[in-house]
């Protein structure tokens, strides 16, 4: 069980984000939970590619490297982080529009005002 401790803690972080999305009433708290879930997923990919006492995936001059970390998950996560930033900007924009219309961030109030 101790070998899988890092994975289990990382997935617990994911569940903290899930709990926030279901329970919280504030729009900004929901956006924050989204960001936490994103971070946990990126961390999980990098944890999967790690090897013990390995070096980073960049070749150096005059040094022979044989034990290298798996580079494929790192390449996938790199683009995922930038997409996450642009999606965050989109969510903030929609939240600001909702605030302008209803003067509140509370999602239950918004539902009531719709009629």
């Amino acid at each position: 069980m101790f070998k899988y401790l890092a994975y289990i803690l990382c997935l617990t972080l994911f569940f903290v984000g899930l709990y926030g999305i279901i329970v919280k009433k504030n729009l900004f708290k929901i956006i924050i939970s989204f960001i936490i879930m994103e971070n946990a997923l990126n961390l999980f990919f990098i944890l999967l590619g790690y090897r013990k006492s390995a070096t980073f995936p960049i070749f150096l001059k005059n040094i022979e490297q044989t034990n290298i970390v798996d580079p494929v998950p790192q390449a996938l996560v790199l683009t995922s982080i930038v997409i996450g930033l642009s999606v965050t900007i989109l969510m903030v924009a929609i939240a600001l529009r909702i605030y302008e219309k209803y003067k509140t961030f509370d999602i239950t109030e918004i539902k009531n005002l719709k009629g």
């Binding site: 930033l85 642009s86 900007i89 903030v92 924009a93 600001l96």
Partner: peptide
């Protein structure tokens, strides 16, 4: 410049 245009709009 994509991020800059979004930030300017905000």
């Amino acid at each position: 410049f994509g991020m800059l245009s979004a930030f300017l709009c905000l």
